[in-house]
Write a protein that binds this DNA or RNA. Structure first.
Length: 436
RNA sequence: GCGGGAAUAGCUCAGUUGGUUAGAGCGUCUGUUUGUGGCACAGAAGGCCGUGGGUUCAAGUCCCAUUUCUCGCCCCA
């Protein structure tokens, strides 16, 4: 039985062309996050099981993690998300950190589940968090970071929509306005989370079933359905509109509008799956009809750091997966033309390998990436290799070139070849590389 | 964890109601005589038809199981 060449189920091999795209996406994430002053951190891939038991839903821990017992009998998990880890790190040094703390990371995460479109077992996820600021300006800033990253890919505001909601507003509506108990509220919240995946009649029927007969008679069920259709805060009933979470949402919308985010809307149906959110929640939706999904989401979760037995630290954050971003780029024709890392392929003519080293070495010292063909193959064969590798420039080095100190540099895309000194060639390559 | 679809050359696929040595295009390799790739021409390699059972005189083709891929569900980083 031959060994399989396939990667592990639900995980991906990154061949150089795949890795190149990943480097491009991560590069944008890093550049934009750092432009807002966010610092990169990382942590071990393996965490103790308890870290997740404290906050995440049972199903995630019990059925959707890679969990095992290590040789010392410790129960551990390959991290399925980064939020507990970063909360742990902040709690560990909370007194020595400078707040507001701006941190980001691009961890590799694993979940044990059946792969499907856009959801694998292994993925990379950008996490952007701000700790220590209990102000709407924190939400506003991290949303701007998200917007900045998408714009840096070349996306425009018509390609995605930023949808805002508030967990506290939902609590107010469900508990105070509709008078539901906590079990009913929880069930309704989960239903709202799924409402766009089911026919409207089915949704209405399921919502109805949650209400008691007397609640239905008083019209509470219809009120909720009506509320969920509301497209702006202004159209909410007066009592709700004057509640403090609604006023807060309105303020955030105003701040974001001032920051020129034209694609931000209020959406009462945005729930987010996790229970740990405590305030504003938001999601960014892809407007591509073929890929209508949430590609990024987050919100305020003030309670997590406090789980480590320290003073609570107010926190906002969001996360975005590499697979969803890639789907977004593909769907909107935003995939970049990526060049190979190698700038120049050196074709050797005759037995000049040793003498060519001084030319090649000089180029490398000046920051030009040069791959040398030392196969001794015929010229056409060496050129074919360069073409196949996708390298844009070929440098010919033969005895007469070494003697003249003039070398032919050929652009493989245009077919144009010129003879120059090494110094001139280096500057041509650098100019070419910088006009990305 | 539950359900639908799929699996034939490196890739994309064809393969008749089951019937001889399993096909194409692209790609790969070799050559068209050694300082110039893409084009053209000539030739070659490459398949336990995913795997294991079964039905049959005969299975790539029908049946069962299994694995993997894929699309959904559950759940949602």
């Amino acid at each position: 039985m031959a060994l399989s060449t396939q990667p592990y189920k639900g995980a991906r091999d990154f061949y150089p062309e795949d890795k190149r795209l990943q480097k491009y996406m991560f590069g944008i994430m890093r550049r934009v996050a750092e432009s807002f002053g966010y610092e990169e951190y990382d942590a071990p891939v393996v965490e103790p099981l308890e870290l997740y038991l404290a906050k995440t839903g049972d199903e995630i821990v019990n059925e959707q993690t890679y969990a095992f017992t290590d040789r010392g009998g410790r129960q551990v998990v390959i991290r399925p998300e980064m939020t507990p880890t970063v909360s742990r790190m902040v709690a560990g040094r909370r007194q020595g950190l400078a707040y507001p703390l701006r941190w980001y990371s691009i961890p590799n995460l694993w979940r044990y589940e059946r792969p499907q479109r856009g959801r694998l077992r292994e993925h990379w996820q950008l996490n952007v968090d701000m700790f220590g600021l209990d102000s709407l300006l924190a939400e506003a800033e991290i949303i701007q970071v998200a917007d900045g990253i998408l714009k840096a890919t070349g996306a425009t505001h018509d390609m995605y929509t930023i949808k805002l909601n508030s967990r506290t507003l939902m609590n107010y509506i469900l508990h105070d306005y509709l008078q539901l108990d906590s079990v009913q509220s929880h069930t309704i919240a989960k239903l709202i989370d799924r409402m766009h995946k089911m026919p409207h009649e089915a949704f209405v029927a399921e919502v109805d079933a949650v209400f008691t007969p007397s609640q239905r008679d008083s019209g509470a069920s219809n009120k909720l359905i009506g509320l969920l259709r509301t497209k702006t805060i202004e159209h909410l009933p007066e009592v709700i509109r004057q509640s403090s979470p609604a006023l807060e949402l309105q303020e955030l919308l105003r701040v974001l509008k001032q920051a020129k985010l034209t694609n931000v809307v209020f959406d009462l149906t945005v729930m987010r799956g996790f229970d740990y959110y405590t305030g504003i929640v938001f999601e960014v939706f892809d407007e591509n009809p073929d890929n209508n999904r949430s590609m990024l989401g987050g919100g305020r979760y003030d309670g997590l750091v406090g789980l480590f037995g320290v003073e609570p630290v107010p926190t906002v954050g969001w996360a975005m997966g590499d697979v969803t971003l890639q789907k977004f780029l593909e769907g909107h024709d935003l995939m970049p033309l990526l060049r190979p890392e190698t700038d120049v392929y050196a074709v050797l003519i005759g037995n000049v390998y040793t003498d060519a080293q001084r030319v090649i070495g000089e180029m490398r010292e000046m920051g030009v990436n040069v791959a040398v063909d030392m196969t001794g193959a015929k010229i056409d064969k060496q050129l074919k290799t360069a073409t196949k590798k996708g390298i844009h420039y070929v440098l010919f080095i033969g005895e007469k070139d070494l003697k003249d100190e003039q070398y032919e540099i050929k652009n493989m895309l245009t077919g144009v070849a010129e003879r120059h000194s090494v110094a001139r060639i280096i500057s041509i390559i650098k100019d070419y590389r910088s006009d990305d």
